[in-house]
Amino acid sequence: MQILRYIARRLLFVIPQLIGIVAISFFLIKLIPGDPAVLMLGPNATADAVANLRSQMGLDQPLVNQFFIYLGNVARGDLGMSWQTANPVLTDLLQRFPATLELVTLSLLLALAIGIPLGVASSMHKRGALRRFADGYGLLAGALPDFWLALVLIFVFYSVLQIAPAPLGRFSFMLIPPETITGSVLIDSLIEGRFDVFWSALGHLILPVLTLGLVNAGPILKITQSTMDRALSSDYIAFARLSGLPRRTVRAQAFRASLPNIITIVSVLYSFLIGSAVLVEIVFGWGGAGQYAVAGVLNADVNPVLGFVLFAAMLSLVVYLVVDLLYFALDPRTRV
């Protein structure tokens, strides 16, 4: 019950946190020079036409007024229009955000599947070849730019070996897209029994997931390794060893001790990747949320950017709430 009260208290603060985030990003974006009205009408527009459009879009009002109008619209679920796609931003985001989430979630699962076993094993065998491999991998993964790795993977697996499908979107453009239910093509196609789409989507996911997974396994590996190292040299692990507990028990106890740090890094990576997977999204023509927001920034298309920030912030708040609940579950010392 204590937990429920805690969650309720956290949720109470979500609204002011979101308003704060929207305010900061709103004013920062307005600082970027560039007049959307000029961009929309093109270089040959008359001054009258520009002024007309400006007042239509509310751009002639004071900044603070503009902000409160925007806030009021958001409260009613209206995130404005994107002049680039000519769609409501909400519609665009509901279509693109799941694409990014699907990519990032699967990539992080792959990164965990690589980073944790490698980190645990290399920490248990400090002098083996595995340790040197893990150290080298951590260094390499930290140094490799993800878009570069993406291009190399495309070159090898698409151009040379011709195993992977062309890096154009989430599934073959020859197929009719499935009805959007969850937004994840994999899940939606399965629900509708569209196995042709499912296999195509799986194939299209392989290279981008491999790219982001291989790169982000680096930090997960490093954190796992260093916290495992610390746990293994702690007094209670030494005592567990002296008590003759078997190796697998010692390993499990040390891994348990490093779980909070692994959860922390995963949550940070998750929130971070939503926006920063954009380069990989561009390389694979993914049509994700990051790509959408960057196009918005470059074209003074304010509403998509603000909508993206709002979505990403909500996701981060949820992720951090889950993380705190996990800490709660993992460490008895936090349950006072």
């Binding site: 702690s234 007094d235 209670y236 692990i237 030494a238 005592f239 567990a240 060893r241 002296l242 008590s243 003759g244 507990l245 106890q253 348990r256 001790a257 993992l330 460490d331 008895p332 010392r333």
Partner: peptide, 23 residues
């Protein structure tokens, strides 16, 4: 002869010797 069963050891600083996340 097994450590912990036949030959047991107690080390100093007892509070650090117990795993904080196990009862």
């Amino acid at each position: 002869v097994r450590p912990g069963r036949d030959i047991a050891m107690i080390v100093s600083n007892p509070r650090n010797e117990l795993n904080p996340v196990l009862t």
